[in-house]
């Protein structure tokens, strides 16, 4: 069946899932576009995993409908959906070797043995595990298990691939390598990927679009740069990267409105008190209260008023640790472009 390009891969229509009194997912509307790498980002308990489980079919919505390429799948069992999952703990079958694990989906569909072997070989090549077919999962490293799990899901050519924090168990180096690889594989197979993670950096690196979840609701959906540069709420501003939230009197003085806005630490420029602000720039006087030298860059804590501090990050382009550490106590003028602020309401 050809997919109409305008039909969303996944569509949530006021989907809720309650566990007793707890609203794990609360009236969520969502559209995931065919072929995109979509991330569900949020802290644990925010509802992202429940959403994933409902797409996979392990869980059913209490109310609302889930559509997969236009078809209502809300109450279909997992084996009747063209969706496959890479589990957080991989869930490889311990009693089967790598080949049998990968071929599982084809076996239960009664695909002939020869055909199966051919597809398994292709998949092993795709995830760069050729030669591992005879191993048992217990003989593989974490990264290798991860690839087997991926191959096992992809061999069915699902319309949508779900990934439930699949990189969580890997160490940092391997995780960064797998991020690049996953993205490359997604480009190659052209399947819609839905990636659940609590790691904002991971989401930003890999995704075409991100949905930020909080307490069963979606706070914001947008491209990584949207989410980062234009956070729609103070939650998003705080959860994705570090952010300075400024409101009240200072907001009014600088922007003309009391509405709270967010400004990223790296967008703020530290200048001398005598500098004159250029047009379109907002400026404030402050005192450097604390300096943390971090090698690649330095983090400053600058007090702009009693009890109100801003975090500012500057790259150590020319300065040495001696220079930056001696700046403590100095009076400075902070400035940023008015386009770099993002209204977050409140």
């Amino acid at each position: 069946m050809m997919n109409n390009p305008s039909t969303p891969a996944i569509q949530f229509d006021k989907v809720s899932r309650y566990f007793g009194e707890v609203k794990a997912v609360d009236h969520v509307d969502l559209e995931i576009i065919d072929g995109e790498f979509f991330s569900m980002l949020g802290p644990s308990g925010s509802g992202k995993t429940t959403c994933l489980r409902m797409i996979a079919g392990f869980d059913r919505p209490t109310s609302g409908k889930i559509h997969l390429y236009g078809q209502d799948v809300s109450s279909l069992p997992p084996y009747e959906r063209d969706v496959n999952t890479v589990f957080q703990d991989y869930a490889l079958f311990p009693h089967m070797n790598v080949e049998a694990n990968i071929a599982y989906g084809l076996m239960v569909k009664n695909v002939a043995r020869q055909e199966r072997t051919k597809h398994v070989d292709e998949m092993l090549e795709l995830v760069r595990l050729s030669g591992f077919a005879g191993r048992k999962p217990s003989q593989l490293s974490g990264g290798q298990r991860q690839r087997v799990a991926l191959a096992r899901a992809l061999i069915n050519h699902p319309k949508v691939l779900l990934l439930d924090e699949p990189l969580g168990a890997l160490d940092l180096k391997l995780r960064q390598q797998m991020q690049i690889e996953l993205k490359a594989i997604q480009k190659r197979v052209g399947i819609t990927f839905i990636f659940v993670t609590h790691d904002q950096e991971e989401a930003i690196t890999m995704s075409d679009r991100i949905a930020v979840f909080n307490q069963g609701k979606i706070e914001q959906i947008g491209s990584p740069s949207d989410i980062y540069e234009r956070p729609a709420s103070s939650f998003v501003a705080g959860f994705v990267g570090t952010s300075n939230l400024v409101g009240g009197e200072i907001a009014k003085r600088t922007t003309g409105s009391e509405q709270t806005f967010s400004i990223r630490p790296e967008k703020i420029h530290i200048g001398s008190v005598s500098d004159n602000p250029a047009s379109g720039m907002i400026s404030l006087d402050g005192v450097i209260r604390d300096v943390v030298y971090l090698g690649l860059f330095t983090r400053y804590l600058i007090e702009i008023e009693d009890g109100v501090d801003l975090v500012v990050v500057e790259q150590n382009l020319k300065s040495t640790s001696m220079d930056v550490l001696s700046a403590k106590g100095q009076k400075v003028k902070l400035s940023w472009h008015q386009d770099h602020i993002s209204r977050v309401g409140g």
Binding site: F58, P77, P78, Y79, Y104, V108, K109, R152
Partner: peptide, 9 residues
């Protein structure tokens, strides 16, 4: 879950 996800009833 993995088994059902992969198409096994």
């Amino acid at each position: 879950e993995a088994s059902m996800d992969l198409g096994a009833n």
